[in-house]
Design a protein around this nucleic acid. Structure first.
Length: 292
DNA sequence: GAGATTTGACCATC
DNA sequence: GATGGTCAAATCTC
């Protein structure tokens, strides 16, 4: 085990001890201030641990990219120069119908993913060749909760075309952005062009709201409409309505814990943390206390 | 017939 | 060698 990993483990162990103390404190309603202080410490420790892991990852990625260009070889397997990956968690009851995100997607592949029950669908922008739009998304039904779809966006739209007028979909969203620490993600959320477009038509009051689980009605769903060209919402062909970049380590994770497993970064962190601390109702309470 | 989806094959990466 | 991402021919839908 390398030194950095030992340090991370040490940090997490400290967090575990603090969490235990926090649990004891929570039984005593008179020690709320003390609990808040402990929570701050815990968060700081986890942030350190995550940052350590992130630094390692960034260094590794940097080496990969350097290798790619130094060899001047075109790789068929995509090496994303842009690390913007977003996961969406589409709520229940949406297997049928459509969520129109205003962009036109074309499915170009589907794969059985090792360790996953459900296949992953691969979509790219219809205008890929006409407008050189490199936006891509991957859609996979959650193994834990079949009513949830996990959607990963890679790249942003450079095309001008949108398929329809803006829609108001009904889905829950949880996001994370690869390569950023949790605090950076919360405080420095910069949407892509796609995201800006989506936010404008969804009438979201602020970027902060994106990181709250939300749902609102969708006319097409509720009326059984066949938007999105009438066929994109069979199980692996959905198109969620909004893209947001930013943190996955937000309250969304806590509100949709069953859905983070395929996230490349946040899920691994949280699956580990989950073994250390039992994220129960108190955890959600803690998030509220800290204004997450 | 045009455009979208399906699916097996190919290939890069790990 | 296993896995995941993409290609492209076959097929389907409108």
């Amino acid at each position: 085990m390398v030194m950095e990993e030992k340090l991370v483990i040490n940090e997490l162990e400290q967090g575990r001890e603090l969490a235990k103390r926090l649990m004891s404190n929570l039984k005593d309603t008179s020690s709320i201030e003390s609990s808040k202080s402990l929570i701050s410490e815990i968060l700081s420790i986890y942030q350190n641990a995550i940052s350590m892991l992130d630094d390692k990852k960034v260094l590794k990625r940097s080496r990969e990219i350097d290798d790619k260009y130094s060899k001047n070889v075109i790789k068929k397997r995509k090496v994303f120069e842009k690390t913007e990956k977003v996961s969406f968690f589409v709520g229940a009851g949406q297997e049928k119908g459509s969520i129109d995100d205003g962009y036109c997607w074309r499915k170009y592949g589907q794969k059985e993913i090792h360790g996953s029950i459900n296949p992953r669908g691969y979509f790219r922008c219809t205008h890929r060749f006409t407008q050189n739009c490199l936006a891509v998304k991957q859609v996979q039904k959650s193994d834990r909760d079949p009513s949830i779809f996990e959607v990963k966006y890679v790249g942003s739209h450079t095309c001008n075309n949108t398929t329809t007028s803006p829609k108001t979909p009904n889905f829950s969203v949880s996001t994370f952005q690869e390569g950023n620490t949790a605090d950076e993600q919360r405080e420095d959320i910069k949407p892509t062009k796609t995201e800006e477009a989506m936010m404008s038509f969804e009438d979201l009051e602020s970027k902060k709201n994106i990181f709250r689980t939300f749902s609102f009605s969708n006319y097409e769903f509720e009326n059984g409409g066949g938007g999105w060209k009438g066929n994109l919402f069979h199980e692996n062909q959905l198109s969620p309505a909004a893209t947001t970049s930013g943190s996955g380590i937000t309250s969304e994770i806590a509100t949709a814990p069953a859905s983070v497993e395929n996230s490349e970064t946040a899920d691994s962190y949280f699956s580990s943390l989950d073994n250390i601390i039992d994220f129960g109702p108190d955890w959600l309470l803690s998030c509220d206390v800290l204004n997450w």
